[in-house]
Design a protein around this nucleic acid. Structure first.
Length: 659
RNA sequence: GGCGGCGUAGCUCAGUUGGUUAGAGCAUGGGAUUCAUAAGCCCAGGGUCAGUGGUUCGAAUCCACUCGCCGCUACCA
């Protein structure tokens, strides 16, 4: 039975470039869509740029262009990046479209009629000079708890405190540099709590993965709050009907962009949108990252309910990407943009590697650079590509490129591969790509053993027809493996199709056998990853962060003379927390520090008062040599050394995957 | 603090409803080969399944607690 499927990935925000973290989602989705198409389902893949909101406005202003010009440019950049990675949308649209405006207005109007929109007066920061309202992120000031400077309006990166913007000390607008004022305004709210029971029913019916359910239960326990869906102008977005100066909050119209993209596609292709979106013929699936679960598991279905529209069938949630076990980092060069990757490496490597790690779970997946190189080179190149390479050329060079027929043994080999069909299909269907790849890799092992046992390079000298039979089995095996891999490696598959001189392979073609068939000259399928290219990519991704105190101190000082390992072993270095810091009366450069090295407190004098204020130091972490002999100084005893290095406070801002 | 997730070989990860001696790939060591993209094949070493205590005839798997790492905590996007 042919299923009809509509599939979406989260809409990337038009505020920045696509990076390898985003690609987890788009590749996961693309592989699923390609699989569905390969098994003969009618499947369409939709996406769009998410284009509204304050960050877009501010970014455009900074670049001295209009928001429209910005989002047009970013749209083509995003689309180019996706295309470069073989991600094939049926439509890649934009939320800044008439379709989206109409749907947003329609849904809002219906929600109003349903009585779930309320108005409330709220206090919000306002920049008088720029004449704009300020989201918390655009206000900086000193943390009320730890006194760290330049913290965002909602929380402190330094000590992790959460607070109200109004509690911030000396707040300034990052847009104008002036202190914001508080102003009252009426906002529109969507009463999410009205849909609590309906949402619970939806989840019971299987809208989400089990692991996501736990998280949702947590949210239900705390209680669903009303959702602020309006923003005051100036705001780049859609004006709310029957208001003077109110706009839909970007997160309201973003998911509606799924509908707009589909509508736009329908109009271009002579299809009826109502059939696709509201009929019961089509299944709808959303792929998202776990950071935007709240929006897609709660708000989005509730909004659809309020407008009396159908529910999507399922939400597929994936985890984040880490690189070498850590968050992507600009300074380490692991914050790799899609465009940077494409300059250095073949996109198929990443498609294969992600596929080899993706499961249906919401756990994070790790891109270990070393593992990435090893895995691609040994599995993809060494086993799979090499299998074709060690059989194809022999047939074309020495046996006229003509396949023969399968003997009993060959039939057995090919049947063994075919037998895995349903299992592999299930793996793809259930998003367990890692298992599919493991299975395919194991099958490739079987094939390579087959080659080893039949030694065509020996038999070719005496028995050309027997060799033809052997190679016929191997090349049929290559064909089956290629079909299994095709959702992951479309380009690779095209090369094999050309080489085998067959029409584009579909999943059902695993059952057919190529016999007495002329093939074409073998072309190299894929190159090995060169470590140097990966290194160059990482190097190019390293962003020189603005000179900071910490890096200045370490980088500007020349290295001391080399020391022996034994000398190094004598040094007991500990991370210490500054419990207290105070100026030393009568000293020019000294600060007195109380260092907590895990229960034990050390008194230290440090000549760093030119670079640090005592009040900035409390709570910070430093590296200290804990076993340095105490030394009497003019102002007291300094226990560990008077020289130390200040650790970089770790950057807690996550690189958002989508939205 | 509350909640959630994770912790299995040097690395990256599988381990189905609890069931023999815990698996794979890579990496490492040895061997036999040479068709092939210095690939492929055979053999080997390597794990107190984070720890402790329970339930059970039987626990990597279920329960409790401890430790470690990560995330969320509804603000912004």
């Amino acid at each position: 039975m042919t299923r009809k499927l509509l599939v979406t990935s989260a809409l990337p925000y038009a505020n920045g470039p696509i990076h390898i973290g985003h690609l987890v989602e788009y590749l996961q989705t693309d592989i699923w869509v390609r699989f569905q198409k390969a098994v003969g389902n009618e499947c369409r893949y939709f996406c769009a740029d998410d284009t509204h909101g304050t960050p877009i406005m501010i970014r455009a202003k900074a670049e001295e262009i209009t928001p429209e010009a910005l989002i047009d440019r970013v749209h083509s950049e995003h689309y180019g990046d996706f295309t470069g990675f073989g991600i094939e949308f049926d439509n890649y649209y934009t939320t800044h479209s008439e379709e989206n405006r109409k749907f947003s207005e329609m849904i809002y109007t219906r929600a109003s009629e349903a009585g779930v929109i309320t108005k409330k007066k709220i206090q919000q920061a306002y920049d008088e000079q720029e004449k704009m309202w300020l989201p918390d992120r655009y206000i900086q000031g000193t943390c009320p708890r730890c006194k760290a400077a330049d913290q965002y309006g909602d929380s402190c990166d330094s000590c992790g405190a959460h607070y109200q913007t109004t509690e911030l000390i000396d707040p300034v607008s990052t847009v104008s540099g002036n202190p914001p004022i508080l102003r009252e305004s009426t906002h529109y709210f969507f009463q999410l709590s009205q849909y609590e029971d309906a949402l619970k029913e939806l989840f019971k019916a299987g809208y989400i993965q089990d692991s996501v359910q736990n998280k949702l239960d947590e949210w239900f326990d705390v209680g669903l709050k009303d959702w602020d869906i309006s923003r005051d102008g100036p705001y780049f977005g859609f004006k709310i009907p029957d208001t003077e100066d109110k706009y839909f909050y970007v997160w309201l119209d973003a998911p509606i962009g799924y509908m707009a993209s589909i509508k736009n596609y329908c109009d271009k292709n002579g299809l009826d949108f109502e059939d696709l979106w509201n009929g019961d013929e089509y299944e709808i699936y959303h792929f998202i990252g776990k950071d935007i679960m709240y929006f897609h598991a709660l708000f989005w279905p509730a909004v659809l309910m309020s407008a009396n529209l159908r529910m999507p069938n399922k939400l597929f949630v994936h985890g984040f990407l880490t690189v070498n076990g850590q968050k992507m980092s600009k300074s380490k060069g692991t914050f790799i943009k899609a465009s940077t990757y494409l300059k250095h490496l073949d996109p198929q490597y990443l498609r294969y590697y992600y596929a080899s790690k993706l499961t249906s779970g919401v756990g994070d997946i790790d891109l270990s650079i070393e593992d990435f190189i090893n895995r691609v080179n040994s599995d993809l190149v060494g086993k799979l590509a090499n299998l074709a390479s060690r059989s194809g050329p022999m047939l074309t060079k020495k046996l006229d490129g003509m396949l023969g027929t399968l003997d009993a043994e060959g039939r057995k080999l090919v049947d063994a591969l075919i037998a895995a069909k349903d299992e592999i299909a299930d793996c793809y269907e259930n998003l367990n790509y890692a298992a599919a790849i493991r299975k395919i890799s194991a099958l490739a092992d079987v094939c390579n053993k087959y080659v080893e046992e039949h030694q065509p390079w020996t038999t070719i000298k005496t028995d050309s027809e027997g060799t033809r039979t052997t190679l016929t089995a191997i090349l049929n095996a290559v064909k089956v493996l290629t079909i299994y891999l095709k959702p992951v490696l479309p380009e690779f598959a095209v090369k094999i199709e050309q080489f085998l001189a067959v029409d584009p392979l579909a999943f059902a073609d695993v059952d057919t056998v190529l016999e007495n068939h002329k093939i074409n000259k073998f072309v190299r399928l894929i190159e090995r990853i060169e470590k140097e290219k990966v290194e160059a990519m990482v190097e190019e991704s390293k962003e020189q962060t603005a000179p900071q105190q910490a890096t200045q101190i370490t980088l500007n000082e020349p290295l001391a003379a080399e020391c022996e390992f034994d000398d190094f072993m004598k040094v007991d270095m500990r991370v210490a927390k500054i419990a207290n810091a105070s100026a030393v009366e009568g000293a020019d450069k000294l600060l007195q520090l109380e260092l907590d090295i895990g229960g034990v407190t050390k008194n230290v004098f440090a000549g760093i008062s030119k670079a640090y204020k005592p009040e900035d130091l409390a709570g910070r972490l430093v590296l200290c040599v804990a076993n340095l002999k105490p030394r009497k100084m003019r102002f007291g005893i300094s226990e560990p050394p008077d020289k130390r290095r200040f650790c970089n406070e770790k950057n807690n801002r996550r690189n958002r995957a989508a939205g």
